[in-house]
Design a protein around this nucleic acid. Structure first.
Lengths: 215, 215
DNA sequence: AGGTTTTTATTCGAAATGGTACAAAAATTA
DNA sequence: TAATTTTTGTACCATTTCGAATAAAAACCT
């Protein structure tokens, strides 16, 4: 889990001094994974140092103190998540296909890693800090609401295209669709199997889009 | 927030030695609140000592080490939550009334305290430890699945009573109903207002039970 | 009153934690 | 080659953390 040290491949020269022994993006990813599993308070600088292969002064020089590192981890996670989600939202197809793609893209991230289900980083690690650090709470809330808006637009477009039954309430559907994404995070971290989580996704799709024969 | 010390009122004599200066149940509640806000790793023994008004040796004598105290906090929370939920599930009324009662009972707990939304203790504090402590993960999973079964029975009974429309899938509805409870926890802790959360509840009820005029 | 028992209060200690100082190392530039 | 610049590695520091040891306090029992 530690990136190899020593002179990194001369990928990009950066001018004068000694070259870095690590790739900042890789290191940030490894620090993120540590926070993801153990939370902010549960991840010591020694843990982070071991995970990234950087010693503490390097960590400090690159990212600032522990809080700053955590914020950098959130920003990086959000950026990645946003990229994947944007793609899933926009790839086209029926409403059901789109929702299914969204849920499975998210679930793939929630089940990634080697600890048996970590959930969403913002929910699992971010919300742990939310009560202690208002700035973290605000970032998490923004992330949630950005997704909310995505679902609202998706459902509104589906309604406009006539994909929804006549009496359907697109706004209500969007709220539930977004909420069930949070539920998947919770339950992935609680250790539910992929089969169980897939069943929850199917139930959500059936309720929103109408039932469909099993595959 | 600290219970008063000194000789407690002679509620129940317990025989020989010096009487306790605290009520174990009250102290456990205060310790639970500390874990709830700050998580397991984020709550130091000093924090817990200050919150309960017990000094460390007393804490240790009463509950064992920090892990044991956390497990005791989970057990107590589950017992309280189960009592409230059982009542909400069984009090009768239409499906919509019952679901509304369940969600609002839970939401009241999720918004309790003076830190602006803490969510469910098991999700907010428990899941933070789930990856680190498999026993905690198992307890949380059990709690979730106990609720799942409650919703399954509730929806199955509603179906049997003919409260659901003909084509409805009671099992899928139960999964979503249970999942949205998790979503409420997440969003309460993210700082959503009661009005926002009520709107999510209403959306869930509308989707499961059919729309209803606003009050 | 004197002894017994249980809890509380003070204190201590070893380890871990977050953060930093400083010199050695590895590159560039002159 | 020598000076410069940036990063690394080691060591250190003050504080916090968890836990335990020990003595004082407050009740009961005889």
């Amino acid at each position: 889990m530690v990136q190899k040290l020593g002179p990194a491949e001369p990928a990009k020269r950066r001018g004068r001094g000694r070259p870095r022994g690590y790739d900042p993006e890789v290191a940030l990813g490894q620090a993120t994974a540590t926070f993801w599993n153990q939370g902010f308070a549960g991840a010591s600088l020694d843990d982070l140092s071991a995970a990234t292969g950087m010693n503490r002064p390097s960590l400090y020089g690159a990212f600032g103190d522990k809080q700053a590192l955590f914020h950098a981890a959130m920003d990086a996670y959000i950026a990645q998540s946003r990229a994947a989600m944007t793609q899933a939202f926009r790839a086209g197809g029926t409403l059901r296909q789109t929702l299914e793609r969204i849920y499975h893209a998210a679930l793939g991230r929630y089940l990634s890693g080697d600890v048996g289900g970590r959930g969403c980083f913002m929910i699992s690690a971010g919300l742990g800090q939310a009560v202690v650090d208002p700035a973290v709470r605000a970032v998490v809330a923004d992330g949630l609401h950005e997704l909310d808006r995505g679902f609202e637009q998706l459902l509104a477009r589906a309604e406009a295209k006539g994909e929804l039954p006549p009496g359907a309430d697109a706004a209500a559907m969007a709220r539930v669709a977004s909420g069930m994404l949070n539920a998947l995070s919770v339950r992935a971290r609680a250790g539910e199997t992929r089969a169980q989580l897939d069943a929850t996704i199917k139930a959500t799709l059936d309720l929103i889009c109408g039932p469909q024969a099993s595959e």
